[in-house]
Design a protein around this nucleic acid. Structure first.
Lengths: 163, 163
DNA sequence: GGTGAAAACGTTACGAG
DNA sequence: CTCGTAACGTTTTCACC
């Protein structure tokens, strides 16, 4: 965390990002037409932004139900002690745990907030056992069952700016 | 919620999903080699899964910092009354609000849990004003500032199964 | 499901502004 | 330094087996 390799995102980049973050299978020709650039220029910019880490990844979003993961949970975890090494350990565990879709370290009432998927309640129960009860440093956790995933995804508001 | 349109996801499909949910720019040849199928077969399966909605979307994940969205928040919202029409309204508003990355309707202590991005604290303040204070049906909300987005994304654990 | 040809797409080199 | 055009290599698509 010591270097920022010059963002350099202009308005053309922003327009491209706004499109690909919704659908990255949009062809360069389509993007080019929409933003008023040549297909090659669009490709060059995409390649540059992927290399620079502005575009972090290109992924398919899978319908959880299609593969039997019918339930989603939002879990708030409070640690016993906020020691740096224990926290680092917890982060590593969450990264490794395939049931954990997302994990945020937050300020406020709890320490971590997780988005967890499971096949069913029994599957979630197993997850809590493995992830929490076997962990001495976890003070408490509170579960919210998701009844409706109103909005999912990681779309970021991208607006034009005057550079 | 009355019909499941025949999942029909076999182990080849699962292996393909496991790859494309991490990187959907992997070529059919690469996937084919990894799972032991021909490139054309892989393509056919991908096309089918996209048509069936098993693959919901194909998106680029953008680094929020690259476009100036440096802060993330987890917000828990409690409504005054859980009336169906008011809830439906709230869902629509969250879907339309570009600051709201994710929105879950949950059971438990609060009604909705949001993941919100903002340029800075002032941007978040503006968001709360527009989204919450102008809404008579919102009882309370509690904000957690994300200090470390330990794990983001929507990867789902996909394992082989015996069909 | 596999094979191969045709079409579409992404990539790169070149010249121009 | 970045654009657009055009040639090139790769990938996807589709008809057929």
């Amino acid at each position: 965390m010591a270097h920022s390799p010059t963002p350099s995102v202009d308005n053309f980049d922003r327009k491209i990002l706004d499109i690909v973050q919704v659908s990255n299978r949009t062809t360069s020709d389509q993007i080019a037409e929409q933003i008023g650039l040549s297909p090659a220029a669009v490709q060059r910019r995409l390649k540059r932004m992927r290399a620079q880490g502005i575009i972090q990844a290109d992924v398919s979003v899978i319908n959880p139900k299609a593969i039997g993961y019918a339930m989603t949970f939002v879990v708030q975890v409070t640690l016993e002690r906020e020691r740096v090494d224990l926290m680092h350990n917890f982060k590593k565990e969450m990264n490794a745990n395939r049931s954990v879709q997302q994990c945020y370290y937050v300020t406020g009432s709890s320490d971590f907030i997780l988005i967890v998927t499971a096949v069913d309640m029994e599957g979630y129960d197993n997850f809590t056992r493995e992830a929490f009860f076997d962990n001495a440093n976890i003070k408490s956790f509170q579960t919210n069952v998701v009844m409706d995933p109103v909005k999912v995804g990681l779309t970021i508001p991208i607006d034009d700016q005057q550079d």
